[in-house]
C-alpha cells in the first residue's frame, strides 16, 4: 500500500467527491421522480395510472448500465442530444431508482387508512390538502426505511459511470492500479471507501427515520445490526409485497 503515492491518494479522494456528487444529484432526481410517478399511480384517472405504471415497468425492466449506454451513445446519434457522461449517468440513475422509489411511495400512500382521507373529506379539505396535510405526513415515516435501501443501491450504482470514463472512485481505482500494478491493495481500499460511504448514508437515514417517526409520535424500530434493514432490500424486494411470502408468521403464544 506504500506504493500508492500522495498524488494517487488525491486521485482517489477526488473520486470520492465525484461519487458523492453523483449520488446526491441522482438521489434528488430520483426523489422527484418517485413522488411524481408514485402519486400518479394512485391517481383517479386510468390514463394517468396507465402511463405512470408503464414508466415504472419500463424502467424497472431495463438494466441501468444498458440505459446509461443508450443515453450516452444512442441519444447523441439518434436525436442529436450530446450529454456529458456525468449527466447521462445522473439521468439514468435518477430515472431508474426513481421508478423503484415510486413503488415505495405508492405502497406507503396506499397503506394510509382510508378513514384518514374520509376524515379529510368530512373536514372539507381539498384533494391536494388531503394529500399534503393528511396522507403524506403519515406515509412518510413508512417510506424512509425502504428508501434507505434504495439509496445504498444507488450509491453502488454510481460505480457504473467509471465505464463511461467519469472519474469517480471506481475510475480512480483503475488509474491507480495501472500506475502501481498492484491490484489487491487498491481494490481493497476502494471497497472500504464505498463501505464507509454506505455506512454514513445508513446512519444519516436512520436519523431521518427517527425524526419522521417522532413526528407522528411513534418510537423508531429496533434493529439488530449496524446495517440490517427492513426487508433486506434491493430494488427487487424493496417493492412492498415482493417479500411478502417470506414475512414472519409467529405462533400466538
Amino acid at each position: 500500500m506504500s506504493d500508492i503515492s500522495w498524488g494517487l491518494w488525491q486521485l482517489l479522494l477526488k473520486g470520492v467527491w465525484i461519487t458523492v456528487q453523483l449520488t446526491v444529484y441522482s438521489a434528488a432526481l430520483g426523489a422527484v421522480t418517485a413522488f411524481v410517478i408514485g402519486l400518479a399511480r394512485t391517481h383517479r384517472r386510468w390514463l394517468v395510472r396507465f402511463l405512470s405504471g408503464a414508466y415504472f415497468e419500463i424502467f424497472r425492466g431495463t438494466s441501468a448500465l444498458i440505459l446509461m449506454f443508450w443515453m450516452f451513445f444512442v441519444l447523441p446519434v439518434g436525436f442529436g442530444w450530446q450529454l456529458a457522461p456525468m449527466w447521462a449517468a445522473v439521468l439514468t440513475l435518477g430515472l431508474t431508482y426513481g421508478a423503484y422509489g415510486s413503488e415505495v411511495v405508492r405502497g406507503a400512500v396506499a397503506a394510509v387508512a382510508p378513514a384518514q382521507r374520509e376524515a379529510g373529506i368530512a373536514l372539507g379539505f381539498s384533494p391536494a390538502q388531503q394529500l399534503w396535510k393528511i396522507v403524506l405526513p403519515q406515509a412518510w415515516p413508512e417510506m424512509v426505511p425502504p428508501c434507505t435501501n434504495l439509496l445504498i443501491e444507488l450509491l453502488k450504482g454510481t460505480a457504473l459511470v467509471s465505464i463511461l470514463g467519469v472519474g469517480d472512485i471506481a475510475f480512480g481505482a483503475s488509474l491507480v492500479r495501472n500506475a502501481t500494478t498492484q491490484s489487491a491493495p487498491v481494490y481493497t481500499v476502494i471497497l472500504v471507501m464505498y463501505f464507509v460511504l454506505a455506512f454514513v448514508l445508513t446512519r444519516g437515514m436512520r436519523a431521518v427515520e427517527r425524526q419522521a417517526k417522532a413526528g407522528i409520535g411513534r418510537p423508531p424500530a429496533k434493529r439488530a445490526s449496524l446495517f440490517r434493514r427492513a426487508g433486506g432490500g434491493r430494488p427487487a424486494t424493496a417493492v412492498p409485497g415482493a417479500g411478502a411470502g417470506a414475512t414472519g408468521r409467529g405462533e400466538p403464544r
Binding site: 453502488k156 460505480a159 465505464i163 471506481a170 471497497l191 464505498y194 445490526s225 449496524l226
Partner: peptide, 26 residues
C-alpha cells in the same frame, strides 16, 4: 455477518474488478 454486510454494501462492479485483477495475483 461482516463478510455479507461488506459485500452487500459495496458495488458489484468493483468486486468484479477485484476478482478479475486480484485472483491471478493470488
Amino acid at each position: 455477518t461482516v463478510l455479507t454486510e461488506f459485500v452487500r454494501n459495496t458495488p458489484l462492479l468493483v468486486q468484479l474488478f477485484f476478482l478479475y485483477y486480484v485472483m491471478p495475483e493470488w
